[in-house]
Structures are given as C-alpha cells and as structure tokens.
Simulated scan of single mutants.
Amino acid sequence: MKPQRILITGAAGGMGRLLRPRLARPGRVLRLLDIAPIDPGDDGAEIVRASVTDADAMEAACRDVDVLLHLGGLSTEHCWEQILEVNIHGSYVALDAARRAGVARAVLASSNHAIGYLRPEDGDIDAAAFPRPDTHYGVSKVALEALGSLYADRYGMGVVAVRIGSCFERPKDARMLRTWLSPDDGARLFEACFAAPAPGFRVVWGASDNTRHWVSLEPARALGYAPQDDSERFAAEIDAQGEPDPDGFLMSYLGGTWCGPDWNTAEKEASAR
C-alpha cells in the first residue's frame, strides 16, 4: 500500500520541530522542507533544502504528496518587503505548486494575529471572525487565508486554515493561558484536518481546551478535533508572576502586545532611515 506523504514547509522552525515526532507514524512519509538545515533523524523523513518562494523547487517537493502542511514563512514581524516576499508570495508559490502537482489537501498555519485587534471581552471569538490584523505579519496571514479560499473554490482543493493561538511546550504568560495550543493537541488538530472528508474551505482555531479561553473550538471539533490538554495546569506558576494590567495591551486584545507601540513596524522603519 502506498504510504501517505505529507510535505511540511518550515519544518526547521519551532512548530515544525514540535510537530515532527508527533506526526511521524508507520505508513506515512514526512517530507520536510526549509531553507535552514534539518536534522535527518531516524524517522525516514525526506529532507528538502529549499525556499517556499522557489517555484521550481516547490513543484518538485509537491510531487507524490497527499497533504501540504504549510508552516513556512517569517514567524514574527518584519519589514513589508520581507513579509510580502516570504509570507505572501511564498504562500502563493506553495499553494500553486500543490495545485499543479495534484495535491488534494492543504492545511495552512494562519495566526491569531490575523484578527489581533479583536477584544476578547465579549465572549468566545469565532474561528472565522472578520480579519483585524495587528501587524504586517497579521496581514500576511489574512492573505494566506484568502489564497486558501481561492484554491478551494476555484480548484477544488480541500483547505483548512488554522488560526494558531500560542503553540509552545508551555504557556509563557497570562494571555497564553487563554490562547495556548499544546504540541500534542496541535498534532491532534492537524490530524483531524488531514482526515476530515471534503472540508472545502474552513477556518478553525488552533487552541487547546483551556479553562481560561478566549476562542471557540466548535469549528475545529466539527472536523474531528478532540483536544485533551488545558493550560490551567500551568496557571499557578503564571499567576505567581503577578496580575497583569487588565487594560494593558497584553490582556485587552487577542493579539496582545503585538497591538502595542513596540510592534509598530512603520515607526521602526521610519526611525531607521
């Protein structure tokens, strides 16, 4: 029986490294792509050293692939030119290469920063809330979702965009108690996205089943996601750091401090001139 082959872009990044051992399994081949070096490991992974902006390399990497898991791109705020080239154009290149290679399913790593300027004060935020990006990076994730919608509607590709909250081994602050996605739940969510029949185009939240929560997991559960982790086990340690200012950027906006002046890219670029 032919093994399932999953192409993971950005595989050398933090999330790629967390997911690799959790997605490896018998009957599956992980094809790992990044511009940075990738540990060959002992899981039988296929290693591809390439940029998501290289159309020829991406088309070659997509051959014989069943699922594209697109994590590749700049993971924090950068100047517009870099965001445009790597995150927006690179996502187009990846999706179009997948289309040309006949890849039937794409799972896209979007972000809470696509709607970072939403306030969590009015209850759980819907997974498909209208974009309110907080940075150039956030704009790139809105563009990624739009590209996913286009490729689903025009070309019939099954596309799920996951608005990831905060995927780390453990939450780092009070905000992340609300947005945390454990690596194990991240793998469970992506497995559900891989297996869901005929998803069309969906936007879902990437978060664990946190006691302190800001987002709705119902669309992800509808795909078969069954989260098992809760950030509350880290709450005592984080609460001991002190009560955050309820009116500060960290707790006032879904995007946290990314909505504050320290992340004003235009201001930074102007001061550098």
Rank of each mutant, 00 (worst) to 15 (best):
V86T: 10
P227D: 10
G138I: 06
D239K: 04
P219N: 07
D43Y: 07
L144Q: 13
T53C: 14
E232N: 13
G148K: 01
Y155I: 08
D39R: 08
P197W: 04
G255Q: 01
W263D: 09
V67M: 01
V162E: 00
I47Q: 02
V65K: 02
Y253S: 00
A222D: 11
A174Q: 12
A104Y: 05
F249A: 12
A187I: 06
A45C: 09
A60V: 06
H70G: 00
A36F: 12
E81N: 11
V29E: 10
I38G: 05
A101L: 00
V65N: 04
H78D: 12
S208R: 06
E77C: 00
I6P: 01
S110Q: 02
Y155G: 08
D122E: 15
D184A: 15
I164E: 03
R154K: 13
N87F: 06
T53G: 07
L147V: 07
Y225L: 11
A98I: 04
V52K: 11
K268D: 12
P261M: 07
G10H: 08
R105P: 06
M1P: 14
R63E: 10
P199F: 02
A272R: 15
C193R: 02
S208C: 10
A174L: 11
A207L: 03
I35M: 13
W214Q: 04
A106G: 09
L69R: 06
R163G: 05
A50H: 05
R132D: 08
A236M: 10
G248K: 03
R154G: 13
L217M: 06
W258C: 09
E85T: 15
D122I: 06
R154E: 15
K141L: 01
A222H: 08
S111F: 02
E169N: 13
A207M: 09
A36T: 10
A55H: 09
R202W: 03
